[in-house]
Nucleic acid binder design. Sequence first.
DNA 1: TGTATTTCCTACTAAATTGATAGGATTAAT
DNA 2: ATTAATCCTATCAATTTAGTAGGAAATACA
Lengths: 139, 139
Amino acid sequence: MLSKKTKYGLKALTYIARSESDMPVQVGLIAKSEQIPQKFLEGILLTLRKSGILGSKKGKHGGYYLRSLPSEIKMTDVMRVLEGPIAMVPCVSLNYYEKCDDCPDENLCSVHKLMIQVRDNTLSVFRNTTLADLSNTSK
Amino acid sequence: MLSKKTKYGLKALTYIARSESDMPVQVGLIAKSEQIPQKFLEGILLTLRKSGILGSKKGKHGGYYLRSLPSEIKMTDVMRVLEGPIAMVPCVSLNYYEKCDDCPDENLCSVHKLMIQVRDNTLSVFRNTTLADLSNTSK
DNA sequence: TGTATTTCCTACTAAATTGATAGGATTAAT
DNA sequence: ATTAATCCTATCAATTTAGTAGGAAATACA
């Protein structure tokens, strides 16, 4: 299941990408418009900022903004920040690989083989999708 | 993340598919060979039986057996029984559809669009994979 | 300089899920 | 009868999820 965190995060990013103004977008606005608990969203945007996807400005007239063009923001990156590893098992994860304690030889493991395929397919979706696709912006 | 339940279930099914004998396969044997807590595995095989994928025989010399040929057992069915819905969000689930309370129009929802793609790709893997592929059996 | 407004940070919490374990009932072969 | 297997229910500890609470820090602007 997709976590609320990821869902909210994606919606927020889309909202920001669609914003015409060159002023930073405030959490309160997004929360209200997208029906997301504000305090929860604060935390999510914070991790997106720490990961480098968003930038922020504090104080009055502060808010969040994208640090790249929507078309440059790949879903692989966004999903890894919000949802964690894309692979369903650590033993097929590219970025967070971990051997299974059980499995003596993962080349012979039936689960491994299947999950590699799932990973590759999911990855191809995320690699070929940017925030511009999500938000229907051409930028 | 793939649950242990699913992982163990897939391994057990593979084990049973590979078994040459026409006697039913006992839980204890699988548990030992695949390093799975026996009592936990009992429950898993039980749900696989209730779903119709496995058959069982009670009492001495009892155990579990496949109710179809491995090549007839599709991963879509197995995964739905073990892991639940294949979609990452209920609003793109074919078998367990549910509307999101927030989303006023899901055709305009950016998350929806993305998750449809992920679902379709994952589904195509599971539709084109059978237990025979997992277990390298030709049957 | 002060006040309002915003992000930032830490800590806490209730509920759900996961990964088991325990104990025994039921069924079948010998 | 005895033994060996599945079947069934209940319980539990640890983790994760989805928030909430309260305030510190920074910034704009009067």
